[in-house]
Nucleic acid binder design. Structure first.
Lengths: 117, 117
DNA sequence: CCCTTACTTGAATGAGTGTTCATATGTTTC
DNA sequence: GAAACATATGAACACTCATTCAAGTAAGGG
């Protein structure tokens, strides 16, 4: 047993070294967590699920999810910032659609996972 | 254009109906979001990444992530509650390992996604 | 031009969350 | 049995976050 700088006892030094060796960069792991965090909200999951079916404008999404346009717009801003959705203006109407099929895959995998349990 | 109960104007009634028809149950979508939320924290992602390599006890994880055993234990409790990790007692030491390869798949897909960008 | 409409945005608020600290539990060792 | 140790857990704290509300922008119609 060894004490590290944090006063934590180490039991299996070798396994720790092994896990550490295969651990991706801190930065990458933080990004992975942030991606998941973005998907970790029912409103945003519903938005993505709807946009996976068809392009929709803000007020359509608001009607579909029975929420205010403001609430939807705030969430779309987050999804936009991560490049998950893109938008297209048509007059004063703004149409949103998916811009990242990786994320779509994640939602699908998670859906199948939940449905199996 | 139609006004629904929430005072939101509907632009594309047909598309909304289409999206609604393909929308999974509210309950399932909430569970999907909760699964993602659980993966949406750097500490938990690191724990899962480490356990994907090898079984580890709480203090090993604490040493690896340079955090207190208490903080790790709290996170493991959440992962345990969702059936994502399982544990095995060996005397006073508690070894944790992964108990859900779906989740492992999600992390892998997300890792590849982040690394591509 | 003014009014309505679709959307955005900033501040505020209430709920939720991760870590710390102190304490408790259960196990081993002396 | 007492001390040491690995975990677990409850409360507290700072912090984040989703929604609401109010105000602002930009486009179209009368």
């Amino acid at each position: 047993m060894v004490q590290d700088s944090c006063q934590v006892t180490v039991i299996n030094e070798q396994r720790i070294a092994q896990a550490q060796a295969q651990m991706p960069d801190e930065m990458i792991l933080v990004e992975v967590a942030e991606t998941f965090k973005l998907l970790g909200d029912p409103t945003r999951v519903k938005i993505l699920q709807a946009l996976a079916v068809t392009e929709l404008c803000v007020c359509d999404l608001a009607a579909l999810l029975e929420m205010t346009s403001s609430a939807i717009s705030h969430q779309l801003r987050l999804l936009r910032a991560r490049g998950i959705v893109r938008y297209r203006k048509e007059g004063k109407i703004v149409y949103y659609s998916l811009d990242d099929n990786h994320v779509q895959t994640l939602v699908e995998v998670s859906l199948r996972h939940v449905e199996e349990c």
